[in-house]
Amino acid sequence: MNKVMSNKWMIALYVLPSLMLVAILIFIPLVLTGYYGLTEWNGAGVMKFVGLENYAHALQDEQFRESVVHSFLLALFSTLSLGIYLVVSLILASKIKGTNLLRKIYLIPMLLSSVAIAQLWLKVYHPTNGMLNSLLNLLGVDHPPEWLANPDIVLYAIFIPILWQYAGFYILIYYAALKNVPEELIEAARIDGATPLQIALKVKVPLISGIIKVTVVLAIVGSLKYFDLIYVMTGGGPNGASEVMASYMYKEAFGSYHFGYGSAIAFYLLIITLIMTYFTRKLTASKDDVQY
């Protein structure tokens, strides 16, 4: 038994193909991104080594700094919206009938590609014939805003389809966790005279704090990577008002052929994502994790 299961050739045969794919297509490119960031390069010609120039330039670059701020704003919105999802899940999990169908309906947008969602919401936000402004007209609003053309509101407008896309996903996760809370604990609290609101806030929410922490990490790290939806809906515009890190990188590299500078931005994106993953995990990993 042990001899057969320790056969080095077989282990190599089973593991190496995948390991090589991941090494060549994920890990080596990450290292190369850091290196390309040290060069001036148009993607095809000669690479000119320029040291830390690109990295230093990015810190001075107003557009890059704004894109970082926008990415973090989206991360903040996403984290705050977790509160809404949690409330909805608490309602769903409180012995209401028909929740199965409701959860499935909530999840439907999650199945669509970000490109399809972006195209659909371009139509929803269309200034004259869109669903939203037509609705506002019916309600008597005379001059509803041009949602995606106004730099002051475009980032909020873009967050709505993100909320729409992920609502069902987070509600599903919270609901599954809430259904795992032992019935005896809720019963005990009820016998002690706790109101449904108290049961929700003092019993249920603390008991699923582990899952809540996971979702906070998912929401923050996921937001830092947003690209498809913004690329299709606004291309970062108007005037950079909805630019995020990934879209700015893409524009610099594949739009302006600044592959060196684009790589520096991509490397910052990597570092920021890893740091945020580390810190959100650290911050949310409190010592008094509730056990049940």
Binding site: N2, N7, V22, P29, T33, V221, M249, S263, A266, T273
Partner: peptide, 27 residues
């Protein structure tokens, strides 16, 4: 199967899950 490096190799795959794809796109 029995081999010493199974945990580190698993760790490598796990790390691969966390990285943003846009950071690898240019290379």
């Amino acid at each position: 199967m029995n081999w010493k490096l199974n945990k580190p190799v698993l760790g490598l795959f796990m790390v691969g899950y966390m990285i943003p794809i846009h950071s690898a796109l240019i290379p």
